[in-house]
């Protein structure tokens, strides 16, 4: 047993050294985008740009650029062109679009559909319906001709904002955080492969036999957080707001009383299963669906 344990630990140690070296030399580890407290909101640090990495051997590598307002976009959102059709897109990581180059975000693709459009994308990973409402009230309401909010069940299950009004919750730079940032191996395992998320879900969800099999993907409409129900949150949006969704990812009964639009996937939305997010094709489909909606006289 001693020989085995010695060899096992040695193998792990040697693997860690080789992996750390390879990751450093080839710059394969992802990194956490720095955050700042911007008007009380937890925003990405304005002005930074670089390469966003996920997966093994740089499986997903894309260019990001954080604008002056803290959103991933090559344009600033400080002014609106009154001569063009103004469109606001609100959403989570799908709208934030780190999985493709920022130059090919849904907004830019939409602008390529018609030179008459200009689009601002208010997307933040992990955002939920509470964030969407606060974003809508802070920057969007009354400023744009069209507002589209991309929703899925994941967004509609949480009512506590994840980044709006959360500016004070940004952790200070601790020694542990510095070690984390300096270790390519730990960052690789955690950011590229979501190790912590997987471990968390293991302890949160527990064994399958402890779960109630009937509760899969159900949304409890009575779920209350701070006495707010999902219907009350929906009432905060104007009737002109269009909820965009992908078939199979949302309980459509929640949005059937509001304007809604299904993303029409005409080209493969996911290439090579790079996590659950859309690749460029998915964004093209989304942009085309919105374009078709705007052009349609029916709405």
């Amino acid at each position: 047993m001693k020989i085995f344990l010695y060899r096992f630990v040695s193998t792990l140690f040697l693997s860690a050294i080789i992996l750390e070296t390879v990751l450093r030399v080839f710059q394969l580890a992802g990194s956490t985008l720095p955050e700042v407290n911007h008007d009380g909101n937890r925003m990405l640090k304005p002005g930074i740009e670089g390469t966003w990495i996920k997966g093994g051997l740089g499986e997903v590598k894309s260019h990001y650029s954080i604008n002056s307002q803290g959103w991933n976009s090559i344009i600033d959102f400080d002014e609106i062109d009154p001569l063009k059709t103004s469109i606001a897109l609100i959403g989570d990581s799908y709208i934030q679009g780190l999985h493709v180059d920022v130059e090919n975000s849904i907004g830019r693709l939409l602008e390529s559909d018609s030179s008459d459009y200009f689009v601002h994308e208010y997307g933040r990973d992990g955002a939920n319906i509470a964030d969407f409402l606060m974003v809508y009230e802070a920057w969007v309401k009354g400023n744009y001709e069209y507002t589209f909010i991309l929703v899925s069940n994941r967004n509609l299950n949480e009512f506590q904002p994840s980044f709006m009004n959360q500016g004070l919750s940004i952790p200070s730079e601790s020694i542990l955080r510095r070690v984390y940032n300096d270790s390519y191996l730990i960052r690789y395992l955690n950011i590229n492969h979501g190790l912590l998320l997987k471990i968390n879900s293991l302890f949160r969800d527990g064994p399958v036999f402890l779960q109630n099999s009937d509760s899969d993907s159900c949304i409890d409409l009575e779920l209350v957080a701070g006495q707010v129900t999902i219907e009350e949150i929906f009432m905060g949006f104007d009737s002109t707001v269009v909820f965009v969704y992908q078939l199979g990812t949302v309980d459509t009964s929640l949005i059937e009383n509001h304007r809604h639009l299904k993303v029409n996937h005409q080209v493969f939305p996911i290439s090579y299963g790079f996590d659950g997010h859309w690749n460029l094709n998915g964004r093209i489909n989304c942009a085309n669906s919105i374009h078709t909606y705007i052009q349609s006289p029916m709405h």
């Binding site: 792990l12 040697l14 080789i18 992996l19 093994g56 997903v60 299963g273 996590d275």
Partner: peptide, 21 residues
Amino acid sequence: DLVIDAVLVVMILLKTPVSNN
């Protein structure tokens, strides 16, 4: 043999797809 095992571990970790099946 330790090196061979370590190289296998490294290759496995480097080529694990993000959302592997």
